[in-house]
Design a protein around this nucleic acid. Sequence first.
DNA 1: AGTCTGACCTGAT
DNA 2: GATCAGGCCAGAC
Length: 141
Amino acid sequence: MKKYLNPKELPSLPSAGKTKKETNEKVSFFETVFKIARTVPRGRVTSYGAIADASGLKLTGRMVGWAMNAAGNAKPAVPAHRVVNSKGELSGRHHFATPTLMQELLEQEGVVVKEDKIANFKAVFWDPGQPTPKKSIKKKA
DNA sequence: AGTCTGACCTGAT
DNA sequence: GATCAGGCCAGAC
């Protein structure tokens, strides 16, 4: 539930990367997430958790989704539409320019979306940490 | 410095 | 099998 009683605006969003001192060479985890997100080939989708794990950092699914927010501001554009939750649902579709844009983009890439969910999620799933999917979607350590 | 949020995930009931 | 609750890290007020 949102407690934003004050309609000031959306909850502060990091400046798409350079939140602190951009003068510092230390890059934000945002770029890391973007880089992995771009690793997903066309027609494939991945999950937030997978990116978080593949990032090598201690990032969690929330951080990934959060970073995806800045994805729209990142350049080149990050294929956030290829990133869904572990259930294969287009959880972030509502955050796109239009709630249907995400599905449209996926369909354009050949991904079958049904009821805001990836039809053959297991089939189109792509693990950034394991580019050679055999059969197991879960890649427990 | 403390609090709250966040496009989530996993385990437990 | 479905629903509930907790936990996770990082950033902004």
